[in-house]
């Protein structure tokens, strides 16, 4: 028993993916510990969001497997994965446009979490989550009436409503003001302190560097660097990818 120490929160083993015969990701291998914050950086179109889709079951990898808390979840259906405790936000927000903000969050509470609470408690819980992301005043508005940054926050509240243990944030900070980014940093830190493990995709290095334990740089289908934010940012591959194509 003792030898079987708790398995890591998430393991990616040799994930490969491609469309129409064109490879997009090759041999991505990564282990994420509990309550760790790992950020993915890399140019647009490198496959960061696709990697999230693979973890959440929205896309199936060509090769490799996704292990969550010691269970192989590769190819399981998205709702099963969600109920096991992995939640995500979408880069292009996908609210339920005809439902109110509150109802959007309630859907997460109703279907995402394993145990169902009392109807009253659910409403309170949803309002608490809206408070957390600062959307409580919009609770009665419809999903389609929100602005982009409000939608991003709604995505976070809705994802948290499913009571996840691993949260994937896809570009939550894009387009936020510096003040809002500071708030986001605080929120992410408090979530981690509450026991969450987070994977983050973001172009805002200010955000990612402040919160991340590790940074993963993706470039041309492969992981080019993994490590502490400062190390990764100073690694020659990342410098080359971000600052120019000066050949080594």
């Amino acid at each position: 028993m003792a030898a079987e120490a708790t398995p890591p929160c998430l393991e990616l083993k040799g994930i490969s993916f491609g469309f129409h015969g064109r490879p997009l990701l090759e041999d991505i291998t990564l282990t994420v510990g509990h309550q760790e914050i790992v950020s993915f950086i890399g140019p647009n179109g490198v496959g960061k969001t696709t990697l999230f889709n693979i973890i959440c079951g929205l896309a199936a990898p060509l090769k490799g497997s996704v292990i969550y808390r010691g269970v192989d979840i590769t190819g399981r259906e998205p709702h099963t994965i969600c109920r096991m405790g992995i939640a995500r936000t979408f880069q292009i927000p996908r609210p339920f446009p005809q439902m109110t903000v509150l109802e959007n969050v309630l859907v997460g509470i109703w279907f995402g979490a394993e145990e169902a609470g009392k109807p009253d408690g659910e409403r309170q819980e949803a309002l608490r989550l809206l408070d957390l992301v600062g959307l409580r005043h919009k609770a009665e508005e419809r999903g389609r009436e929100l602005t982009l940054s409000e939608l991003r926050r709604l995505e976070v509240a809705r994802a948290l409503a499913t009571k996840p243990r691993l949260l994937l944030l896809d570009e939550v900070a894009a387009g936020l003001s510096p003040q809002a980014i500071r708030e986001a940093v605080e929120l992410i830190k408090s979530l981690r302190d509450g026991g969450l493990t987070l994977l983050i995709i973001d172009h805002f290095l200010t955000l990612t560097c402040q919160v991340s334990d590790r940074l993963v740089a993706l470039c041309e289908r492969k992981m080019t660097a993994v490590g502490k934010p400062a190390e990764v940012l100073n690694s020659p591959e990342v410098m080359r990818a971000y600052l120019g194509r000066g050949d080594a």
Partner: peptide, 25 residues
Amino acid sequence: SRWGWAVRTIREDETAAASLGVNVR
């Protein structure tokens, strides 16, 4: 009922519904 809400979420955004735990299939 909750079932009715599940049906509604599928109409409004199936991908979002699936990733919030609705058993779409």
